[in-house]
Simulated scan of single mutants.
Amino acid sequence: MHFLKSNKIKLLLCSLIGVNLLANSSFDEEILSDSRKKTFTLDEKQAKEDSAKLKKDWINPITLQYKKNLGDDYKGETSLISINQPIFQSGGIYQAIKYANSTYKYSNLQIQQQRKLLIKDALNLLFQIKKLDLNIQKTKLTLANAKIDVTRKKEQVLNGFLDSSFLDNALLTLNSSKHTLVDLKYQKQELINSFNNIAAGDYKQFKLPNFELISKKEFLEKNIELDKAKASIEKNKNYSYMTMARYLPSVNVFYNYSKTHYTDGKPKAGQTNEQTYGLSISMPLDSRAFNDIESKRIEYLKSKLNLKNKIDDEKSFFKTKIDKLNMLNERLKITKEDLALYNSILKIIKEEKEAQIKTQSDYDTLKNSRDIKFLDEKIYKIDKQIILLDMYAKIF
């Protein structure tokens, strides 16, 4: 099966199975509503602007000041321009730029992860709706069998072959199946409402994707969570060096220009101009410096440990999903064996029905039971796709 259009799902699957093709991320977003897609676009723009701002944080603002004296003794105007700009901060300027770049990389990965998770939610809802459709079909078959059983038990009770308690139990089973069908229909509508909240259109216009399994190596190499952890290491490393540089010598260039114009009240003084410029060297002596530097260094070390923990977590996640897939494969194997058995028995029942040894209700009951097993097989396959979807949401 294909998701949306065939060329789009091919790109989706390429990202899953590790084929080296250039996938357009907009294809992934086709299932999302315009407002959801616009939110991610704005998040990306904001991350870019925040990074640009961080790159300029080491540049001090130019101070412009204007004063007008309205006193009785001296009336005049003063204009002031002041610049105090660092040109060397013991590597702090270079680290500040690197920190801005690493922060942008981390933010971008976060946005990509959020986008992936929302697409996963939409696809998961599609799978769950399809699964409920199959369960509704199963319940309808169970309901049909329950009606046949009630009819059969009713005849047997009226003819004195069975106690009325058997009929009562059959009626309870029939009633339970009816309530189950009502509940399933309500659950389906709930899922449809949730899907409409994030999707670009009606769920019926989308078809289910077909995911394939990737290797453990590919899963770890393309894992967004691990890339985020690596980006966090780089970000904290740059911030640690940047913090250290704050407490090291800094060379600044400064320039001050002042112009004052007196209108009256001060003899022999109509206007004054003053300017100073030069270099200054400073080094803060802060009692908290060591604590600040050490705290940032510890944060950096924690992020390195976090990567090791994340690798273990993702390995465990992968193994858990593989184990669950294996369990479903075993269930599929059993279901296929059951289907083969049902088909062989159904063939015999059909022959006996034609020979008037068995009734039509006997044949219908067994056929419904066979069809339930067939639907079970489809449900297990959807469960496998949901597991693979969980894995897809974690990789590029």
Rank of each mutant, 00 (worst) to 15 (best):
K367M: 07
K75W: 01
I387C: 05
A100L: 09
K120C: 04
R370H: 04
P86L: 14
F127Q: 02
F290V: 12
F317G: 01
R331A: 10
L301W: 07
L42R: 08
N108H: 04
I372V: 14
N20R: 06
E212D: 11
L141C: 05
L32W: 01
A146V: 00
I349E: 03
K116M: 08
S258V: 12
A144L: 09
R246P: 00
D383G: 07
P284M: 08
N7V: 07
K8A: 07
K75V: 11
N368I: 01
I387L: 12
A96D: 06
K140I: 07
F318E: 00
L220K: 02
T260H: 05
I334D: 10
A340T: 07
E49A: 15
R297Y: 09
Y257T: 02
I311K: 07
F219A: 02
L375K: 08
D34L: 13
D121R: 09
Q271D: 10
T272L: 14
K235S: 12
L301R: 09
I31H: 01
E352I: 00
H179T: 14
L184I: 05
Q271E: 15
D202L: 08
Y262T: 04
G71Q: 12
G265T: 03
K204D: 05
F254N: 06
R115A: 11
T359H: 04
T263F: 15
G265C: 06
G160N: 03
L167G: 06
L248S: 03
N326S: 10
E212M: 09
E354Q: 13
K55D: 04
G270W: 07
T320F: 10
T359I: 00
L141N: 02
I83Y: 03
T243F: 03
L70V: 06
R288H: 13
S6I: 08
T63M: 13
L213E: 04
L389H: 02
Y241M: 14
I293T: 03
F195T: 02
K105L: 14
D72S: 15
Y380W: 04
L226Q: 00
F317S: 09
D50I: 10
S287E: 06
S232M: 12
E274Y: 15
T260F: 03
E351K: 11
K259R: 15
F290S: 15
T272Q: 13
A96Q: 10
T320M: 14
E274T: 12
D227G: 06
Y262W: 10
N326H: 08
K147L: 12
Y106C: 09
D323L: 15
K5M: 05
V19R: 10
I129R: 01
A340H: 10
N252K: 11
D72L: 14
F317T: 01
S177E: 06
L54Y: 11
L42M: 11
T103R: 07
N291G: 15
Y203T: 04
K217M: 01
A144W: 01
A122P: 00
Q360I: 14
L109M: 08
K216I: 03
S26V: 09
